[in-house]
Design a protein around this nucleic acid. Structure first.
Length: 276
DNA sequence: AAAGGACACAACCGCACGGGG
DNA sequence: CCCCCGTGCGGTTGTGTCCTT
């Protein structure tokens, strides 16, 4: 066990050891020249011993800074670009297990860094959770993730359509606000494409027309909801394109948690637009 | 067109830990 | 046992870009 006194001493020592060099050290964004120096040095000598590496490579950076730059940006197997849907689901799932253990979570996402995952969580997920007033890792949240993971896996393996639930499913529910189910995004767009995020405004269904009678009591409620969203300039979360219930290949009843509120649509809005 | 706010991401900081001398 | 050093982790900050007014 390390005492507090010992800790502070260690910190002080660390500080003092570097103090005289701090004035010459560069900080902030890396230049192309610095990147080149670092990459070339590591190509020739390998990584590790970062303080020595920084000096020998001629970099006016701390070892820590070099390590971070290499691991988070320059390393060849670092994956660039937006997180895929599968990766996002995995992050949600793993975070529910391990909390903010970013490096542990990153181990399960090849090519993704802990920093990237941490940023994703803080900038996207937390924002959505705040808006929804949902606790991360609450039962509702976890249930939503599990259902989404399952549906996503089914969608990938069987190529069936996860379209808008048929009116029969809606009519069987006892939920008081079931119309919200109608705006959940279970909506396959063919070709085995992954489930998708919010559609563009051009994909609004024609909500000036009444929905088909087969939508039952929920159709009109859903339409009014969409009208309200349009008034508020919100995007619908799925694209029906029209009142196309006939395209539902699988009579899939919406689970109870979908009936509760619009949690899922917001979860989906976490997804980047790159899948569209 | 300009200002300023929001957002995403890169980078930094402090702390913790383990190994070697 | 203590100290030093290297490394890793999680939280925070800085900055560039995009969007809105």
């Amino acid at each position: 066990m390390i005492s507090m006194a010992n800790l502070s001493t260690k910190s002080e020592n660390y500080k003092n050891a570097n103090e005289e060099e701090i004035s010459e050290l560069r900080r902030g964004p890396w230049t192309i020249e610095e990147d080149t120096l670092l990459v070339r040095y590591i190509a020739g000598h390998g990584e590790g011993q970062w303080n020595i590496l920084a000096k020998q490579a001629g970099l006016k950076r701390t070892g820590k800074s070099c390590r971070l730059r290499w691991l988070n940006y320059l390393k060849p197997d670092v994956k660039r670009g937006n997180l895929t849907l599968q990766e996002q689901l995995l992050i949600l799932e793993l975070h529910s297990k391990w909390g903010n253990r970013w490096s542990k979570i990153a181990q399960h996402l090849p090519g993704r860094t802990d920093n990237e995952i941490k940023n994703y969580w803080r900038t996207r997920v937390q924002k959505q959770l705040r808006q929804l007033k949902v606790e991360a890792n609450s039962k509702r949240f976890l249930d939503a993730i599990h259902h989404l993971s399952m549906l996503e896996a089914m969608d990938q393996s069987s190529n069936f359509s996860l379209n808008f639930p048929p009116p029969s499913a809606l009519q069987n529910t006892t939920s008081p606000n079931s119309f919200e189910t109608a705006i959940h995004p279970f909506n396959d767009h063919g070709g085995g494409a992954p489930l998708r995020a919010p559609c563009s405004a051009s994909q609004w269904p024609d909500i000036s027309q009444p929905p088909p009678s087969s939508y039952g009591e929920f159709g009109e409620a859903w339409r009014l909801n969409m009208v309200e969203m349009q008034k508020q300039k919100q995007e619908p979360v799925c694209s029906l394109g029209a009142w196309e219930i006939e395209d539902c290949d699988v009579p899939m009843a919406a689970p109870d948690w979908l009936m509760e509120d619009s949690m899922v649509e917001n979860l989906w809005s976490l997804e980047d637009q790159n899948l569209i």
